[in-house]
Design a protein around this nucleic acid. Structure first.
Lengths: 121, 121
DNA sequence: CCTTCATCTCAATTACTCTTGAGATATTGA
DNA sequence: TCAATATCTCAAGAGTAATTGAGATGAAGG
């Protein structure tokens, strides 16, 4: 369960355009992930040191993970941490205020199919 | 529907300890809101200029709203914007990956009552 | 080994954010 | 109108974040 410090780090990591785009890219890339170089090319050909800076920032915040694979270093989205951020916002902001969470959950039905009987939309 | 720019502003606003605490306080305060002075006292007696800085930052990001009430300026949480942030994360991060959203939604049931009346509470 | 490729690390620079303190503005009541 | 209250605005300074370019590190292949 994510605490305040972790949430602050996550928000800081997500508040930078390049990093937010990296996270989105890695989420769509799935568990296979992408090597740093490929991510850099997707970011308008950002320099390697710039990519390294942002990727380690994201990794430090726990939002992505890395593994070496041959010469490349492959990054993947840290799904539990991402859902942890959503969960933090809900837990924190929702206290007695379904006005905040309910519309968000309504949006969920259109993005994930409501297969799991979570709240059966 | 929240766009990337708005999301970046929201994350930046939430990535600062004092501001995150302000948001939490205002959410629990409900639609009645709280005057700037009361919020400042709750923030370890922060100075008025410091409060003004953070409150206008939050207002600029759309996460809180203000209205004058006598001598005071009363701040309230902007619930639609807050749910918009959650929705953005879900929409953005969930694409084909219920692994991200589902655990978050499961957490929801313990915070808001799991009414199935999801549509606009 | 030596070279190439992929990425990281470091130092310098620029840019932004936060805090502080002094002062301005708006509202109320005497 | 004057004083008190509540908050905002502004400028300065300290601190933090992002970009750049040069060089170091680590892996693979000849």
């Amino acid at each position: 369960m994510m605490n305040e410090k972790q949430a602050l780090d996550a928000f800081a990591a997500l508040s930078q355009e390049t990093r937010l785009r990296i996270v989105r890219l890695l989420v769509t890339a799935g568990p296979a992930g992408l090597p740093a170089g490929a991510i850099g090319e997707a970011m308008d050909g950002a320099s390697s040191s710039r990519m390294s800076f942002h990727l380690s920032h994201l990794e430090h915040a726990g939002l992505v993970e890395s593994r070496r694979e041959g010469r490349s270093i492959v990054y993947t989205a840290a799904y539990p941490a991402l859902s942890g951020v959503i969960e933090f916002l809900m837990r924190d902001c929702c206290q007695g205020h379904p006005d905040v969470c309910s519309p968000a959950v309504a949006a969920l039905s259109s993005c994930c199919e409501p297969e799991k009987g979570v709240a059966h939309a």
